[in-house]
Design a protein around this nucleic acid. Structure first.
Lengths: 235, 235
DNA sequence: CTTAAAAAGTGATTTTTATCAATTTTTAAA
DNA sequence: TTTAAAAATTGATAAAAATCACTTTTTAAG
């Protein structure tokens, strides 16, 4: 079941198109001249809030959570970034420190591009700067949506919404009708939804009762997206 | 009492510096060639979510709330924009519709710049595109902060925080020790804090009891920012 | 100044969410 | 496999916030 046409996934996902996709060859070469690749293990931290940025990161493969820590070191996940997304450029562009932390949600292959190369390419390439302006503006809209979701929706509604979004992100070689396994700890899910783990568990088991989803161990398989859309959208 | 050094106002305010301040004369001229000015009355709508943008707006004087409406037409204020800030450029840069609504919080003088002039100037001016990249990245950090505030802080803490931020925004010709009047309806305050009006009123009267603030009619005068900072930051 | 409408404020109650204290299941290392 | 640790789940309870019904105050029009 595709959700195009019944759910505005763009409002909740940064990646309308990859920033680097079909960048002119020259620009891409300049940008990646000194890139290095690294594999991050599940849970491994890529950068920390407050640190000074030394470059940007490109997710070749894997998933990354962007999050903040509160006074009690509790995580609040701002966004789940997927394959093809760029990380850590906000700090460089705003000439400030990282506004959030980033850590691998699963084993991830990530390229590092030094700050100098990024800024140099940005200087040269109208396409890149145009692309970044577009991406950042879109990200603004996504965060504004998330913000009003937090302010106005219940835990049940927020969880339904995040499950719809996560299902899209966890699709691999997806074909219509194929099941999608969302493989995320209850703690991360709770931190994404903005509630306690226990509440996530309780709502999940309600959803299970209603045949909206099933679980295999920690994995969540959404059986009825349409119902989730109804729960997320309506009062 | 200044809060520089004791409170990171930048984390909550878009306006680190005005986007248009000391733009090269040529660029500014090109940008403002066809600008028109208009005075918006208190409450008047500047643009609506979902509409196609025809240009950008510059707040010459006054204050504007950016907000979203939920299913029941309840407002959720995302941000309060002040004199010197630019509005409505996200939609043009993301080649999409307005992600939120904007309305005057008080009588405001606002300049309109047609889309074509904005894009033309952006094409010409490295300074403007650099400036916008910086602004947008900073806005990302601000929204990320707001997001985690909503997810992690209580109504009391959020109200304290917003009062600190609003006090900065409502300063006019401020000098040390001078009182600042925050002139905002309880409904707008509630929508900014993300709660019901009654809760705002209750917490405000607690704060009044604790001599943290006083009220003159609907106006709020903060007497002790330090206490607000403590309430906002700590558990 | 008077007065009706709008906004602000109060108290009681319900609903939602958080927290605490367990038990059960899953995961991954030996 | 076995098994200890981590993660998930459940139930009971406390705390926070939302809602409802109403009164008082403020605002602004005439």
């Amino acid at each position: 079941m595709s959700i195009k046409g019944v759910f505005p996934i763009d409002k909740w996902d940064f990646k309308s198109e990859s920033v680097l996709a079909d960048l002119p060859a020259d620009d891409l070469e300049l940008l990646t001249a000194n890139k290095s690749e690294q594999v991050y293990k599940k849970g491994e931290i890529i950068f920390r809030e407050g640190a000074y940025p030394s470059g940007i990161f490109y997710i070749i493969d894997g998933k990354v959570k962007k999050y903040k820590l509160d006074k009690d070191a509790k995580e609040q996940i701002i966004y789940v970034a997927n394959k093809g997304e760029l990380l850590g450029y906000h700090a460089i562009l705003s000439e400030d420190r990282y506004p959030d932390c980033a850590a691998a949600l699963e084993e991830s292959r990530i390229a590092f591009i030094p700050k100098e190369d990024f800024l140099e390419t940005l200087h040269q390439s109208k396409v890149l700067s145009r692309r970044l302006l577009k991406t950042l503006s879109h990200e603004f809209a996504v965060l504004a949506n998330s913000l009003s979701m937090f302010a106005q929706k219940s835990v049940r509604e927020r969880l339904a919404l995040q499950l719809i979004v996560l299902r899209e992100k966890y699709k691999v070689n997806f074909q219509a009708g194929m099941p999608v396994e969302i493989n995320m700890s209850r703690d991360d899910l709770a931190s994404l939804v903005g509630t306690a783990r226990e509440n996530v568990v309780r709502v999940l088991s309600e959803f299970k009762q209603d045949k909206i989803l099933e679980t295999k161990g920690r994995k969540i398989i959404v059986l009825n997206v349409t119902k989730l859309i109804k729960i997320a959208d309506y009062k």
